[in-house]
Amino acid sequence: MSRVTRNRPLNPRRIGVITLHTFTQLVRMKVFYFLGFFALIVMVSNLLKIQDLGRPDLSGAEVLRSIRSWSLGTMTLFSVVLGVVATALLLPKDIEDRTLYTVLAKPVPRIDYLIGKLGGVLMLLFVSLLVMDLLMSGVLALRTHFVVAEQVAGLQARGWAADQIEAVRLETAKQGPTWSLQGAVLLVFLRAAVVASSALLLSVLSTSTLFTTITGVLVYFIGNFQGVARKIMSEEGMGFAERGAALAISTIFPDFGIYNMVDMVIQGEALAAVVVGKAIGLTCFYLLLHVFVSWLVFAKKEF
């Protein structure tokens, strides 16, 4: 008689096992060495323009801006590269090593395997960005404290009014560890999540790591021109071919433009909650879309 079994798809426990395993696999590939490199970047950016600290005006804020700029730039680079490469590597490696046979020969629905693999990459991105965020915020908090103290002392010596000094202090504090900065780090994570899910989709279509990596990077770059594509579509007098190409780009490729708000945050501008909400919604849509299409392909794939 057949044994009673419960192997429904989307089992959180099973997905969690694969996620944790993928995370461990990537950690043991020593990707966290990059965090040491990041710490070095933050320290170097902290030392830049240190000679300007003696000036009792806003130039001290440049140091803070430099730390934000370097840190968020490095976070973006790290997360995008990791999102593409780690995801592109995992599936073909499992096929090549035949470990996929042993996993799929267990009662593991293919959708659980795919989500677990993506989950492992997202977990790694999240933990890495969290560590980098803590490091950046710590350095920024410390540095902001010194910069503000020096500015206030200098301005007081010049006899500036209290409200003027407070205005300068607030302006400088905007370059410190603000909530907008945390929002920007979240945007970096969301962008990397979409990059990873795009790479997952590419890796089920092709078994070549190199192809997936190169195409993944291309998708990322093209996705940054979504705004231009939409603009072309709305312009009058455009040819059929241009419109078609623009339509294809804006339909197929994820719109990474929305995540570029990070640049504004580096300049000290506030990040509106609605922008973050929109980015979260868009990211969820892309993740679901990519996982669903990946599953449609992967479910029929033969090994």
């Binding site: 044994r3 079994t5 192997n7 798809p9 395993h21 461990t24 696999q25 043991r28 590939m29 090593d97 035949r98 470990t99 046979y101 042993t102 020969a105 267990k106 009662p107 593991v108 629905p109």
Partner: peptide, 19 residues
């Protein structure tokens, strides 16, 4: 998928996760 609950499989020349 449920049929796999009753099966164990050893592929030819298996390689497991080296880590």
């Amino acid at each position: 998928v449920d049929s796999r609950q009753d099966v164990g499989f050893l592929p030819e020349n298996p390689y497991f996760y080296k880590h």
